[in-house]
Write a protein that binds this DNA or RNA. Structure first.
Lengths: 358, 358
DNA sequence: ATTGGCACTCGGAGTGTTAGAGTGCCAAAT
DNA sequence: ATTTGGCACTCTAACACTCCGAGTGCCAAT
């Protein structure tokens, strides 16, 4: 039996089904694809493809549609990715040119990707674990409430309100600021973890002489009490953690509804999953483990039940390896993989270079 | 003719239709609602209600369904709001107890509201137009790139990356920081607008003698060039604008899909509108003009075409009047108004008091 | 003003029929 | 050994038709 022709048949089925959304029969294949054989031959091939689990028929007298496995085979054998159109390239370049505020940039990227693919696009905040603490600002708000702002040399900013036991005046704040910055500025984020503050707690509890002796007087004189410093250290720790906490922006949910008849009833769980960032993060993280330039999850390959009839195409972006920031496109299993993949790849590439520059 | 009975009939139709999602006929009404009259009488009333535009029939031989106008009448005449269940009250109180980080609080609130109503919930960031500039931090990143961070006394933080024409060292940054803070600190956000920087631009273009003479030397000596200051002033202006820019958080989109058969094909435009914050902001803003505790927009009362078969229930929340922050629930026209309204009202009330405390 | 009665309308559900798309298999052809 | 034409078979989707019942509107009677 002709092995390569069977592959061609599978490809034809996938392509036609993606294009028409209708089961494709033997006759249709010979017509639309210049394959030099008769329908009967195709039928034989199809019978075998079906036996192997690559295709299935909805009813006895209908054409075949690809199974998840069929799509998988198709994707793995894609040889040439559909190149982007001129207009699409221009759109991407324009994106890169825009003013490079990180948030804004990611926002535009994800919208662009959704637009290019007509699917739902996700983008994960780039992780900058190499970043160092640039500056910590401590600002008094109402009495007893201060705002702690962490600024990294990668331009991330995280803030948090801390409620103190004592009121601290401007001088006190200045002293705190100085002390905290002396302690943290220049340190790698990755080297600041929960232990820091616990240690401090321990020290305080043990009554480390050097500082605690002055505590109450400091407080009375407007200087910071040790408890206050501890609170703020805790806050910094939290902020560092928040820096690591990964966030996802998405766009194009409406596209899901447009091609949403594929899903029928199943749309609600998908939207639910979208609201749980955790689910999406897990998804992206698990895909990161593929260590491929582009990784694709098809239908039930997604462990999460809600995504059992969707596919996800993800790529890594950002500077070096190890930074696990990813962007992805999610759509119905019946999606145009070549186009989607090349769009994801292109956007990832351009965004990476834009980030490198910035 | 009995006027009050007609109102009862309308109410019955709305209630039954909301409950069953099927057109309701005269017979069904007399059965389900203990009204002391015969179906024929109801029919007469219904004929008149239809003539007045409150109800309509999908087909000749079907029952009646309420029109937008019918719902409107119903809503306007709601006398007693369905009180919340004990469990619901508890959920709300628990919400208020949680750690009071503003972002987290809003997030929890909007989720809660979506859960209570089984609809889509929106919440607008509270506007603090009275806020003053507390501090402006200028941090150097890579050469020629600085991060400008605006901190208000209400605890808002906005940041922006600015690309400068010159490299500025730490001393220069300190000087800039001092100068910018001297200029802006303590000022009301509302008193800082685009004119500030335009003026400066104009001055610079006209070559105001006092400063421009020193420009190049400053730069050479590590001091800030006037152009640099101007750039940073612009950034501050932008940040202030960003402060005013209102944001919306939403939750419960999945609920839309659940009861989504009401919409059929129309779901995509709704989701699209959701992605455009502007649309939602306009919606809330226009509803703010009702100056009612609770305002309701039914079907085509929403000017935006995409929302022509949805209703929105909105309430103001936050401290005093004038602060136009709102929260809202959006769902199909055929929604349980009494329940929704009382949920919105209750959540608004509790959130307000929580904000007052914090 | 209300009511029972009655004729009328019409949508939806059920049934039967048909056309056609598609299949599987077999025997002949290459 | 593979390919092919032919043929019988199986379903589904579409259409036509019928029929029931829910619901209405109107009218005459109360």
């Amino acid at each position: 039996m002709n092995d390569s022709r069977r592959a061609q048949v599978l490809r034809a089925i996938v392509e036609d089904f993606v294009a028409t959304n209708e089961p494709v029969g033997s006759k249709a294949i010979v017509q639309r694809h210049t394959l030099g054989v008769s329908p009967a031959t195709i039928r034989n091939d199809m019978a075998q493809l079906e036996a192997e689990g690559y295709i299935a028929q909805p009813h006895t007298s209908a054409g075949r549609i690809p199974t998840d496995l069929g799509y998988r085979m198709f994707v793995d054998r894609i040889d040439e990715f559909k190149p982007l159109s001129q207009a699409e390239r221009r759109a991407i370049l324009q994106l890169v040119d825009g003013e490079s505020d990180l948030d804004g940039m990611l926002d535009r990227t994800v919208r662009l990707l959704a637009g290019l693919t007509h699917q739902v696009a996700l983008i994960q905040y780039p992780m900058v674990s190499q970043a160092k603490v640039k500056h910590i600002e401590v600002v008094g708000l109402a009495a007893g409430r201060v705002l702690v702002v962490l600024i990294t040399d990668a331009g991330q900013v995280e803030q948090k309100i801390v409620v103190l036991a004592e009121a601290v005046d401007e001088d006190g704040l200045a002293r705190i600021r100085e002390r905290i910055n002396a302690e943290y500025a220049g340190r790698r984020l990755s080297r600041i973890d929960a232990r820091t503050s616990e240690q401090t707690d321990a020290e305080a509890a043990a009554g480390t002489p050097s500082n605690t002796e002055a505590t109450s007087e400091d407080s009375a004189a407007g200087g910071p009490a040790e408890a206050t410093i501890t609170r703020i250290r805790d806050a910094v720790t939290d902020l560092v953690a928040a820096t690591r906490e990964e966030r996802i922006i998405m766009a194009g949910t409406a596209n899901l509804a447009r091609s949403g008849h594929e899903f029928g009833e199943q749309m609600a769980p998908i939207l639910e999953a979208f609201e749980e960032q955790v689910v999406l993060l897990k998804l992206l993280t698990s895909m990161a483990e593929d260590h491929a330039e582009i990784s694709v999850r098809i239908g039930r390959e997604n462990t999460h039940e809600s995504f059992s009839s969707t596919s996800v195409v993800a790529a890594e972006y950002g500077r070096v390896a190890g930074s696990s920031a990813r962007l992805a496109v999610l759509g119905p299993t019946r999606m145009d993989y070549p186009t989607t993949i090349s769009a994801v790849r292109a956007v990832a590439k351009y965004v990476s270079s834009a980030l490198d520059r910035g």
